[in-house]
Design a protein around this nucleic acid. Sequence first.
DNA 1: CGGGTGCTTGACTAGCATCAAATGTAGTGG
DNA 2: CCACTACATTTGATGCTAGTCAAGCACCCG
Lengths: 214, 214
Amino acid sequence: MFQDYAIGKYTTVPGHRNGSVSATAKDQSIKLSADETIYSEGEYALAIYQVETGAVRIYRLTANGHRHILSFCGKGEWFGLENGKVRTDFAEAICETRVRPFPTNQVAVVPIDLLHIALTNLAKAQCKQLIISEQSALKRLAAFVQEMADSHPEDSEFDMMMSRSDIADYLGLTVETVARSFTKLREKRIIRLAGKSQRIVRLLDRDALVALTT
Amino acid sequence: MFQDYAIGKYTTVPGHRNGSVSATAKDQSIKLSADETIYSEGEYALAIYQVETGAVRIYRLTANGHRHILSFCGKGEWFGLENGKVRTDFAEAICETRVRPFPTNQVAVVPIDLLHIALTNLAKAQCKQLIISEQSALKRLAAFVQEMADSHPEDSEFDMMMSRSDIADYLGLTVETVARSFTKLREKRIIRLAGKSQRIVRLLDRDALVALTT
DNA sequence: CGGGTGCTTGACTAGCATCAAATGTAGTGG
DNA sequence: CCACTACATTTGATGCTAGTCAAGCACCCG
């Protein structure tokens, strides 16, 4: 909503934060193997990250020890932007992943639009609220599969990467319920599963899938 | 995380959005009665708002016609910041409310920290995810009551303003379950309810309340 | 007084969590 | 090549919780 306003009508407000961060030439991308942690709760937030390849899970641990996955970040998505100095969540690579860090305390070379990143993440979080407040487990999983499919628009078949337990902690369900809902989707001929851990999805009937989510 | 960096180390990036919006002297606060709508889905987003008195509900309607309340905004909180030109949600006054609009297309007089607003709303949305992914209805309601109590730190008794059905649509429960959970909290001597619609809460045992949420 | 609204309570049922076991796949060592 | 382990997924059986439908209550207002 502010993109068009701000670009071109830029006015300097002395002493006021400009809302951008810098990318210096020496920034390198970081290579991570599966389940490697990028940052943890309580650490100082010194950088934000963009996913180059692979996928990342952002999660929190509740007081009773349960893990809640706030979001999955795929290629091109940004994470690690917080409104305090200290991390409130964890970030881990789901599979072999490359992320690019952007330190937050350097002089600008390439300006980064922090507001846009924040608003995109806000929209993602709001969308996820609608998904996890769906009443039935099948609807939630259908919405999740649709979300995954949308992030692979070119492929009729894609690898979800994440385990059943990741999906369960993302949707607020148990592993067993997720597995049962996957077999329901298989039985309804909406998807076909492949791969050693059944994480490769081929979408057979997109219309039936979206019909489920309504 | 960027507050300290940006303020004082401000560097101008020509042609780049500065992430601030203006407050002009002629902006007036708007007075609304209960259930009056402030904006609707599909409208052009021309302003952001700050609550002066009262409370506001932000919600979306799903394809199957269900209302999901994304957030409640109390005194001092900001809403209406979107990342597109068009509203994706509805905003309504819950009770008698005064909000102050800040048009997004004017020259700056008082700078507004949009990034901070966006990150605060993001943190709120993430916190709510943890609440509504709590397994039991009693835990969700306990977390909600705690949230409401935290927003009235000085008062031992406060008016929630919103109806049971508002709370239900916020927590992803039904009205009946919300009512039943309230009576459980009453029976456990954790809260006392008053007022014609039982919307005034006196917190009797805060420790027991937080014990429920863990 | 009658109707409307919002909250509460009751009876019943569907669906998810839980505990438990089976299946399938990959890797290791005999 | 086959037995054995390790791991993730799937399936099965059971109980409990929250949704559903229905009724009752309290309050307000015409």
